[in-house]
């Protein structure tokens, strides 16, 4: 009976862009949770930064009516992911819970998946990751440290999902709505990031995605993402669903 079993969920995220204040708390939480190496000056200069979630700035409208906007972007965990079929070793595949998972051990580092991704949310480890001595003891023991030569990306904090479902299974109950949280969603001060189960029609995220403001990023690629965005409410103009999708 227990729906804490593997495969009973379809994890997804609803991002309410209207609530996002661009504070970058999610970014910091993600770096800390997932043992992401520090983006040093050298890495930034050589365009080799790794940030599983990022807050992107973009412009809406043409000058002089342009408005600066920002939007958090992470792996969209597409149902129809362009990164998956191109991997020669099945290092990335879609699991039964709707996650696009990356198997570090299998990855040989062809970087083909990253080329296929329209959201550019896949990152390659050009060097062996290093941390300053002071941070060595702060690493998360639940998360693998990725060696050089492999791809990595947002995992929807799969270690947290596993921990929650393990606890629920051992207690013989279902996972409650909102019990499993990613690092970014639990760090978000305005609840712009909401994580949950799309399979449960009564979950918070399932209800949120019914909102008429909902859209998915870059829908022209037909990727069918598991991350749903709710459009920014603009007092000056009426914004229809999906209008954000196409600008750059």
């Amino acid at each position: 009976m227990t729906t804490a079993e593997f495969g009973a969920h379809n994890w997804g995220m609803v991002v309410d862009v209207d609530k996002c204040i661009g504070c970058n708390a999610c970014v910091i939480a993600c770096q800390a949770e997932n043992n992401i190496p520090i983006n040093t000056q050298d890495r930034v200069e050589r365009a080799r930064t790794i940030s599983w979630i990022r807050v992107e700035r973009y412009w809406e409208g043409d000058f002089p009516d342009a408005k600066a906007r920002f939007i958090p972007i992470m792996c969209q965990h597409c149902e129809n992911a362009p990164c998956e079929p191109v991997c020669p070793v099945y290092a990335t595949y879609h699991n039964a819970e709707g996650l696009n998972v990356q198997v570090y051990n299998r990855c040989v580092g062809t970087r083909y998946c990253a080329n296929g991704c329209p959201y550019i949310v896949r990152f390659f480890n050009y060097w062996e990751p290093v941390w300053p001595e002071s941070l060595r003891n702060h690493l998360n023991p639940d998360v693998t440290i990725r060696s050089r030569g492999i791809m990595e990306k947002c995992s929807f904090c799969v270690q947290r999902i596993r921990r929650t479902s393990r606890t629920a299974r051992s207690e013989g109950r279902e996972i409650a709505d909102g019990e499993a949280q990613t690092a970014c969603s639990s760090a978000c001060p305005t609840s712009a990031l909401n994580f949950g189960n799309f399979n449960d029609p009564n979950s918070k995220v399932s209800k949120m995605k019914e909102d008429k403001r909902h859209y998915t990023l870059l829908d022209q690629f037909g990727t069918d993402p598991n991350v749903i965005y709710l459009a920014k409410i603009d007092a000056d103009k009426k914004v229809g669903a999906g209008e954000h999708a196409s600008h750059g």
Binding site: V89, V108, G109, T110, R111, F124, G149
Partner: peptide, 29 residues
């Protein structure tokens, strides 16, 4: 050009028959 060339055997040789993970023949690579 691969990140871990020493693991390329994964690509070309059908390895580890017991686990049933063959190379992904859908991949152009």
């Amino acid at each position: 050009h691969a990140g871990r060339p020493w693991r390329i055997a994964y690509w070309i040789l059908p390895y580890d028959v017991a686990r049933g993970i063959y190379p992904n023949i859908r991949s152009p690579l």
